[in-house]
Design a protein around this nucleic acid. Structure first.
Length: 855
DNA sequence: GATTATGAAA
DNA sequence: ATTTCTTCATAATC
């Protein structure tokens, strides 16, 4: 008895005494870190050539943490001792007392624990903990990834949760409720708690009763179960979503609204259902019994002729109906029996013979096509793990009209070329629909690649171009076999939900690396697309060499005195500028760039803040890209970064967060970011996961997050890391970079330089302060620069303002000329020498490419 | 055709 | 709690 109890009660506490990363991680992230991580951090990575990193302050912090944890632990041990003596553990442990669950004799051979608590109404389901080092752990992992949601998967203890959605996903793969319970019983160290069994049973009974099908380009809700149809039709929400044609005047709603498929006897069946439906439903047990029976019957004659009842739903109501079905416990599934679909033309497409699918990609696809039909759902793979190929393979299975939606025009181009690269599809059958290219495929079937925003245009809108309207109407008139949704986490956005009305597809496949949003809309995907079918383990893929291994570090940069004073005075908005431009951070960045360039790394520096981005880049004479950078210049910079030995570092704004493919990049430095966005952090990390050199002996990619100490940035940083920590990454905290002070040409060593920077930053914030006050400049009515190409003007305004305002500052007069000169010098040197020289070559290359493309 | 200004939305 | 920054589409320029 005691082991079970202690385990459950101490979960996390005992381990915390050896915790690896010091504060300021969130409790969640700290608990998920492993013991070994710290040991690694001391003898690794950076300290090869004098760039030794000392962890002294971090160690001190750790010791403090340890002490606190030990105190806590002692308290806890006392409690459990008392409880053992008194036998009144329940009072002390409350809901966490699991001692009567009963530990199995051979518990050591079983890898999982189940938390018996099932909290009703909470969005989190029961927790399952997997000891990944235990025997049978890999089999248990297979089971858990199928039936549960991975919450956190660091080195040793993995946390999963059973949720209704995860169970639905399991059922869609063909498991039954009993199978799930039996399998859990096999792996669980204790007896599976009754509450958990009940939870599973409750959530697996009604699965598959309702289906959404597409016929003649109309959506139908279909079920074999008369009662289910009755229940749907009498539901307050769903009844309102019936198509107008199915409307009836008299009281015989069910019969007339129910479109009967199959045998002639179906009509009688429906009438029976009507009568059954009138029986008061106060015996759910009996009802459930009937449903199970129905399910069994269905299983028995899987492939025989089945009776189904269905009714059409009105245009644009699919989402509402799907959501409602989920709410009333009748989750709808949409499966596409593409092999037997004779109504839609086939598309001749297969993978090229030399195309190889990786095992995990195959696994993901097997979840989708498990029973020979195409299930709608979401596949989660880390950046660089070949999401595109998964999508293409799915398309090759279904072989019908395919539509691919992505977030940017750039991705459209990429998807189209990937299709041509991996599959034998004819070039003319792959067409793009974006602002620049509006083409229909010539044959009956084909592949259309487009963007979400394109699909969301209102074709009747006054500003809609003729071609666009034409294309949209064509898209709407088609019955698509498969819709691939790239970066599917954007779909819950209010605007992008509209794509569901424009594109009517039998089957939907969502792809993403980061299935998370900072709002609570991510669960909406369950009814918008389908369940999460597969989620890869980042660490596992890294260990197998499919993606690069990454060392993550958070570098704490103290604020310089002057900056900290101003920081404290500033409003929260201006604070951001102060901690982004912290001169110490600048020095750290300079040092790290220098260090990694000498190692032969290619470095990307990310900054969300455009001012900081430009400032850093110009001062260090590195090329940079942000939203206002023209397309040509972007290509310039990226091309050079990839192939020019002289350009080893580029600065990117959040423009580079997603869908940039730079396999040369091996090191990433983040100097400013978007609050606590976990998605951004993960996707930035994704930029270096496809590093070409990833399989070199002992290769590591590096990810640094620079954080200004004692600022709000610390808290955001901790939050941002949560997702990656759950994926098994551990962040080391670096508080001192040895050798930095000795570095030659280190900037901002001179206090005067810092003051100069400070006044510059202060003026920027003042500039923004003006903005707050009134609609008088830059962004307002003034016809000030806006949108593309306004970069130069904006910069100039800034400089002019600087000069004017400096006069008002005490002692500022000395700085003003210095500042202006440097600014101008940096600008001209940077622009002319680098860009002008490359421009001609790039334009020539571009022309050549265009010519080839048009052939 | 390339560039630019503009609005909308995430 | 909020916003800036980015992107996209489109039409008007030269």
């Amino acid at each position: 008895m005691p082991p079970a109890k202690r385990k459950a009660a101490d979960d996390g506490i005992g381990r915390a005494s050896k915790r690896s990363t010091p504060a300021p991680a969130t409790p969640q992230s700290v608990d998920s870190l492993s013991d070994d991580d710290y040991a690694e951090s001391e003898d690794e990575g950076l300290d090869e050539e004098g760039g030794k990193i000392k962890l002294s302050a971090a160690q001190a912090q750790r010791q403090k943490d340890q002490k606190a944890a030990i105190t806590k632990l002692n308290k806890r041990t006392q409690f459990s001792r008392i409880s053992r003596l008194t036998g009144k553990s329940s009072r002390l442990f409350g809901q966490k007392d699991f001692h009567d669950l009963g530990l199995k004799k051979d518990h050591e051979n079983r890898p999982i624990w189940i938390d018996a608590r099932v909290s009703e109404g909470s969005s989190k389901g029961p927790k399952i903990t997997l000891e990944s080092f235990a025997p049978n752990a890999s089999k248990a992992t297979d089971l858990l990834t199928t039936i549960a949601e991975p919450v956190s998967r660091p080195a040793h203890l993995h946390e999963y949760r059973l949720t209704e959605h995860s169970l639905y996903a399991a059922l869609s793969v063909g498991l039954k409720g009993d199978d799930i319970i039996n399998a859990l019983e096999k792996f669980c160290k204790t007896n599976v708690p009754d509450g958990i069994k009940a939870f599973i049973e409750r959530n697996t009974l009604t699965y598959g009763k309702v289906r959404f099908v597409l016929r003649d380009n109309k959506f139908y809700v279909e079920s074999e179960d008369d009662e289910v149809i009755y229940k749907l039709l009498t539901d307050s929400v769903i009844s309102g979503c019936k198509a107008a044609g199915a409307e009836v005047q008299t009281g015989t709603i069910q019969t007339k609204a129910t479109v009967i498929q199959g045998t002639a006897g179906a009509k009688g069946q429906t009438q029976v259902s009507q009568q059954q439906g009138e029986i008061p439903r106060d015996d759910p047990a009996a009802e459930n019994e009937a449903m199970i029976q129905a399910l069994r019957d269905e299983d028995d004659d899987e492939d025989s002729f089945r009776q189904t009842h269905s009714f059409e739903i009105a245009k644009g109501t699919r989402e509402t109906v799907a959501q409602r079905c989920l709410e009333i416990g009748l989750p709808g599934v949409s499966e596409y029996d593409f092999n037997n679909d004779k109504n839609n033309p086939n598309l001749p497409i297969d993978l090229k013979p030399q195309t190889q699918i990786r095992p995990y990609q195959e696994k993901a696809l097997s979840k989708m096509f498990g029973n020979g039909r195409g299930k709608s759902g979401i596949i989660v793979l880390p950046c660089g793990a070949g999401k595109t190929l998964v999508g293409i393979t799915a398309a090759c299975h279904i072989k019908k009209k395919i539509v691919v939606l992505c977030t940017s025009a750039m991705s459209v181009y990429q998807w189209a070329s990937e299709f041509k690269k991996w599959s034998d599809v004819r070039d003319e059958d792959v067409t793009s629909f974006s602002s620049s290219e509006k083409k229909k495929f010539p044959g009956e079937a084909g592949i259309l690649v487009s963007t979400y925003s394109m699909m969301c245009i209102d074709p009747e809108g006054p500003r809609c171009a003729y071609d666009t309207k034409n294309m949209l109407q064509w898209v709407q008139s088609q019955e698509w076999g498969l819709m691939i949704l790239d970066e599917v986490h954007v779909v819950p956005a209010k605007m992008f939900r509209k794509v569901q009305d424009t594109v009517r597809a039998h089957c939907k496949l969502g792809l993403t690396a980061t299935l998370l949003r900072e709002d609570d809309k991510i669960t909406d995907l369950n009814y918008l697309i389908g369940p999460k079918l597969y989620e890869a383990n980042w660490m596992e893929l890294a260990n197998q060499g499919h993606i690069a291994k990454v060392q993550c570090a958070e570098v704490w940069c103290p604020m310089s005195m002057e900056f900290y004073q101003e920081y404290q005075k500033a409003s929260s908005r201006k604070q951001l500028l102060y901690y982004a431009c912290n001169p110490i951070k600048f020095q750290v960045c300079q040092f790290l760039i220098n260090y990694h360039e000498n190692r032969g790394d290619k470095i990307i520096v990310f900054s969300d803040n455009i001012f900081a981005l430009e400032h850093y880049a110009k001062a260090m004479m590195k090329p940079f890209i942000h939203g206002q950078t023209s397309n040509k210049e972007r290509q310039d910079v990226l091309e050079n970064f990839q192939h020019n030995e002289i350009i080893n570092t580029i600065f990117l704004s959040k423009i580079g967060d997603t869908s940039l493919d730079l396999p040369e990049a091996t090191c990433l430095i983040q100097i400013s970011s978007h609050y606590g966005s976990r998605r951004q952090e993960a996707q930035r990390l994704g930029r270096i996961l496809r590093a070409k050199r990833r399989n070199d002996e002992g290769f590591n990619a590096f990810f640094y997050s620079l954080v200004s100490k004692d600022t709000t940035e610390m808290a955001y940083s901790a939050k941002r890391q949560a997702f990656l920590v759950d994926q098994g990454y551990s962040f080391k905290t670096i508080t001192h970079l040895q050798g930095m002070d000795q570095m030659p040409n280190l900037m901002y060593k001179d206090p005067r330089e810092r003051m100069e920077l400070l006044s510059e930053v202060m003026l920027v914030s003042e500039d923004q302060g003006d903005l707050e006050k009134g609609a008088n400049n830059l962004w307002a009515t003034d016809k000030g620069p806006r949108g593309r190409g306004s970069n130069k003007k904006k910069g100039l305004t800034g400089v002019r303002r600087t000069a004017g305002s400096l006069a008002e500052m005490g002692g500022g007069g000395i700085m003003a000329p210095i500042y202006q000169e440097r600014q101008r010098g940096a600008q001209t040197a940077d622009k002319n020498s680098f860009f002008e020289k490359e421009k001609r070559r790039r334009t020539a290359l571009e022309k050549k490419r265009r010519a080839e493309a048009s052939k």
